[in-house]
């Protein structure tokens, strides 16, 4: 890995950790309802620097934030880890195979969907072990995930365009 890539991953991970930690302090009506704004960084990393960088940023974010918040290896961490890896993996696979098919909004929607599906599976296998409450809550989560997904996709789109514009205008590149 080149030092420029390392620098980028470190910087993007730092942003993602800051957002993730901030978000975990926001009160939410349901304990595991999250806005997923840290995924904006993963999304931008994927589109600008590729699958590998995006996965690294996600892993660094999930692990380090959980250590900072104090949930490392706890149930919250397992949910966050599973959701983060599944959503990044799904986005990455779709983006690698069909790079032009989905824009940032579509990728963000895929991420939100897989984040929820992974967390529902984890909740079923690890905590609830009853299919009925999982099925009852899943349409709500998918709908909320679609709303936050589209919002994050919009912001991600702006962020990606901004970084691209800066790169073109910057005298150093």
């Amino acid at each position: 890995m080149q030092s420029r890539d390392k620098y980028r991953i470190a910087l993007l991970s730092a942003y993602a950790i800051a957002i993730h930690s901030f978000e975990s302090m926001l009160p939410t009506p349901i304990p595991w309802l999250r806005l997923g704004i840290a995924n904006i960084i993963t999304l931008a990393t994927l589109v600008l620097y590729g699958f590998r960088a995006a996965m690294m940023v996600t892993l660094i974010r999930v692990i380090l934030s959980s250590i900072f918040i104090g949930t490392f290896l706890g149930p919250g961490f397992i949910m966050s880890f599973g959701g983060g890896v599944a959503s990044t993996f799904a986005m990455g696979v779709v983006f690698s195979i069909f790079p032009r098919l989905f824009g940032p909004v579509g990728l963000s929607l895929i991420a939100a969907l897989f984040h929820n599906v992974a967390q529902l599976f984890l909740a079923y296998f690890l905590f609830v072990q009853k299919i009925e409450p999982i099925l009852l809550v899943s349409p709500v989560l998918i709908l909320l995930g679609t709303i936050t997904g589209i919002m994050n996709g919009f912001i991600g789109h702006l962020l990606i365009n901004n970084i691209r514009d800066k790169k073109v205008n910057s005298p150093h590149h």
Binding site: R100, L101, F102, G103, P104, V105, G106, L109, I110, L113, S138, P139, V140, I142, L143, T146, G149, I150, G153, F154, H157, L158, N161
Partner: peptide, 26 residues
């Protein structure tokens, strides 16, 4: 407008499919 124009048709189809999926799930 820049964002909505930046949405591909696959993005829009996916969005509609997800809304329909959750609505029918309810």
């Amino acid at each position: 407008r820049e964002i909505t124009e930046g949405m591909t048709s696959a993005d829009k189809i996916l969005l509609i499919a997800l809304i329909l999926l959750s609505a029918s799930g309810f």
